[in-house]
């Protein structure tokens, strides 16, 4: 890939914010279970994943720092709400254990597909990060798949909760693939694949798995493969967020902003 031009650099920066913010928020929501999980063993496993997601966000923000956007701590703890590019999917409250594992599963499949594609990104630093994160992502996927497959149809109550979780999460999950203006520049420069392409691969992966887990997915068969029958929830990629995000940022940035510029 040649030198980053104005457009492709802006397109890359936007993309890194999108991915890094999703990781950080999912890690933050997962860490809200630490100490109060449904059983000690489950508490411990999700806490590890929360740390990994935070670590992944930090690595992605490291790429932004190299592009002149500020240190990872500044980007996480000193950036105002409108500048966040996470999908609203990632900022939703953790809900019950069913919602948490369904959201993690839907995100893990998307991340797995995305990192595989980005392993060949024309922006080499991103390709290296993708290859690294793919290794740790493998366990995340096994973890969430195991929970969804087992809880999906184990008892009447677990099925009811998992179906409710999927019904709520699915439209927001489609928001992970929200197109943005600079997407075409990214695709043209070979930095990243089109979101619609990733979404299709994601649907072809999650729909059969969720159905085998005894859950109904709001999709229909189309020539190009599965197609959603619900409207996606967009906005996060443009900086529109919910009050959940306001409360989350207030908490996350509270101590840092007590003494701006101080070392914590």
């Amino acid at each position: 890939m040649g030198e980053l031009t104005g457009d492709s650099k802006a397109a890359l920066i936007e993309y890194l914010y999108m991915l890094g913010d999703d990781e950080l928020l999912l890690g933050h929501r997962a860490s809200e279970w630490t100490g109060i999980g449904p059983i000690l063993e489950a508490d411990i496993a999700l806490s590890s994943i929360a740390q990994d997601e935070m670590g992944h966000a930090e690595v992605l923000y490291g790429l932004l720092e190299a592009l002149g956007e500020g240190t990872p701590d500044e980007l996480a703890f000193n950036r105002d709400l409108p500048h966040w590019r996470n999908a609203i999917f990632s900022e939703l409250p953790r809900g019950d254990w069913g919602f948490t594992v369904v959201r993690h599963y839907l995100h893990d499949v998307a991340e797995h597909i995305r990192w595989q594609a980005l392993a060949n990104s024309s922006y080499e630093p991103l390709a290296q990060v993708a290859r690294k994160l793919l290794v740790e992502e493998k366990y995340h996927l096994v973890h969430s798949q195991t929970w969804v497959r087992k809880l999906g149809n184990a008892t009447e109550e677990s099925h009811r909760r998992m179906q409710a979780a999927l019904d709520r999460a699915f439209p927001y999950a489609l928001g992970l693939f929200e197109p943005t203006e600079l997407e075409a520049v990214r695709v043209e420069a070979g930095i990243a694949p089109a979101e619609s392409e990733l979404q299709q691969r994601w649907l072809d992966d999650v729909v059969p798995f969720l159905q085998q887990s005894g859950l109904t997915v709001p999709v229909e068969q189309a020539a190009t493969g599965w197609r959603p029958t619900v409207e996606p929830v967009y906005g996060g990629r443009q900086g529109t967020h919910t009050e959940y995000m306001e409360q989350l940022l207030d908490a996350m940035q509270f101590v840092y902003r007590l003494e701006p510029g101080a070392k914590w």
Binding site: S31, A50, M54, G55, E58, A76, F77, A251, Y256, W264
Partner: peptide, 13 residues
């Protein structure tokens, strides 16, 4: 949820 840096946040979890 209030930890003020990446290192503190991951370490506290």
């Amino acid at each position: 949820p209030y930890a003020p840096t990446f290192k503190r946040k991951k370490a506290l979890v």
